[in-house]
């Protein structure tokens, strides 16, 4: 918690009180059910996260047929693995290759594929990332420690309320013979935004 309340009695910050006021109004109107809200919070705090996306990427590396499906209809391919829900209705998978590195941003707000990546990291929501990813993606990538190959093109994808992107990073060298579960361990959240690469097995 950001504040220490030990020196006085119960206290609500103005923003906390505003949120409670909204909840009260909406509950009285019958528009929200507090129990349903608790379920939503639990789901997004614990169950949904980048481990889901990592499983999708690992399967795409291991099964060429699945990779093809993902390329053609990412929404269906991802839903088939049980990952669906809000902000995942229309997905597109973009594959990194020797020639192209993909980077995802939402310039307008913070659209992000929740079912496969969970909620976005703080930096993804910052105005700095939202603008610089578009006009100087190479500099942004360098700050994330991503070195591009000579001649490798950067393609920046701007998410919208209608379409979300999942970057499929390149399968790292030395990962032959690993199981899908082991492969998934190599797939970081940042690599699925394009702000990182998959880890090399040690």
């Amino acid at each position: 918690m950001p504040h220490d309340h030990s020196d006085h009695d119960n206290h609500l910050d103005p923003i906390e009180a505003r949120v409670r006021a909204l909840e009260t109004i909406l509950t009285r109107k019958g528009l929200v059910d507090p129990a349903a809200m608790d379920r939503i919070i639990e789901t997004y705090s614990e169950d949904v996260g980048p481990k889901n996306g990592a499983q999708v990427v690992a399967r795409a590396w291991a099964e060429p047929d699945f990779a093809d499906w993902l390329a053609q209809d990412a929404t269906a391919a991802i839903t088939s693995m049980g990952f669906s829900g809000r902000q995942g209705e229309h997905m597109q998978a973009v594959f990194n290759t020797d020639g192209v590195h993909n980077l995802v941003v939402c310039t307008l707000c913070s659209c992000y594929p929740w079912p496969v990546l969970g909620l976005p990291p703080t930096w993804y929501k910052s105005p700095e990332y939202r603008s610089r990813a578009v006009y100087e993606p190479r500099a942004v990538l360098a700050e994330f420690g991503v070195t591009l190959r000579e001649g490798q093109q950067v393609r920046v994808w701007d998410s919208t309320a209608e379409l979300r992107y999942l970057v499929i990073p390149q399968r790292p060298a030395g990962s032959d013979g690993l199981s899908q579960a082991q492969l998934a361990e190599l797939v970081t959240r940042d690599s699925m935004i394009g702000a990182g690469l998959a880890q090399v097995p040690t």
Partner: peptide, 24 residues
């Protein structure tokens, strides 16, 4: 940048998030 982050820094943020989803 790759350290795991909790999606919410305070309960009110989670409440606001959940209200939005529930209303939608």
């Amino acid at each position: 940048m790759t350290r795991p982050e909790h999606p919410f820094d305070a309960p009110w943020q989670a409440q606001a998030f959940a209200l939005t989803l529930a209303l939608h």
